[in-house]
Structures are given as structure tokens and as C-alpha cells.
């Protein structure tokens, strides 16, 4: 439930209860990020370990293949890059400083 800007203490649900399911989707936490994972397609073997491990739901998959990263929610924790096996020792996910990586390949948002 979105709370109107001018809401007061009488207007909000008791005890901070959240009465609407799935509303975390409305809270874009990507702004917390310092580093962002950047995808290197030539090293990707589509094992989808990144998708399994991402603590949010930021790794997007289509037809059983890596599709991209939803940066609206990616907090830059680096777990995906850590678990990524890549190809012959070359990882398919690199963590780059966010401001330097804007527009890099794999940036879907």
C-alpha cells in the first residue's frame, strides 16, 4: 500500500503492518549499489548459478538462458560474480564501480 504524502498517524495501518502482498517490487533498491555486475557474454556458459544465488531477483532468464540484470533491484552484493564459473577461468560477471560501468554491455536498465 502506498501511503499518501500527507498521511498522519491515524491514516496508516497499525503496528507498521503491510497489508498489500508483493509490494517490495515498488521499492527499487538498486540505488544502494556501489559496484554493479556487468555481463561478459562470451564467457557465459548459461549455468544460471547467478540466478540461483542472487539474493534478490535481479538476474533475468529467458528460455533457460541468461538474459540480463535488472539494475532496479540489484544491490551490487557481488554474490553472482563470486559464484560465476565462467569459461576457462574467465568469469562472465565482473564487478565494476557503478558510475564507471554505466552503459557497459549487459546493462539492461
Amino acid at each position: 500500500m502506498s501511503v499518501p504524502k500527507d498521511a498522519g498517524w491515524k491514516d496508516v495501518p497499525k503496528a507498521g503492518r503491510i497489508l498489500e502482498p508483493g509490494c517490495a517490487a515498488k521499492y527499487e533498491t538498486g540505488g544502494w549499489r556501489t559496484y554493479r555486475p556487468v555481463h561478459v557474454p562470451e564467457n557465459c556458459i548459461n549455468c544460471l548459478l547467478c540466478w540461483v544465488y542472487c539474493p534478490d531477483m535481479s538476474i533475468q532468464v529467458e528460455n533457460g538462458r541468461f538474459k540480463g540484470i535488472d539494475y532496479r533491484y540489484c544491490k551490487g552484493c557481488g554474490v553472482c560474480a563470486q559464484v560465476c564459473p565462467g569459461k576457462r577461468g574467465n568469469k562472465a560477471l565482473m564487478m565494476l564501480l557503478d558510475e564507471e560501468a554505466q552503459g557497459a554491455e549487459g546493462d539492461t536498465k
Partner: peptide, 11 residues
């Protein structure tokens, strides 16, 4: 919002 919820409790 914590202060508003405490105000509700007081009410």
C-alpha cells in the same frame, strides 16, 4: 513512520 506507530499505541 515509527513515531506515528508509537502514537497509535499511545492512543
Amino acid at each position: 513512520w515509527n513515531m506515528e506507530h508509537k502514537r497509535q499505541q499511545a492512543e
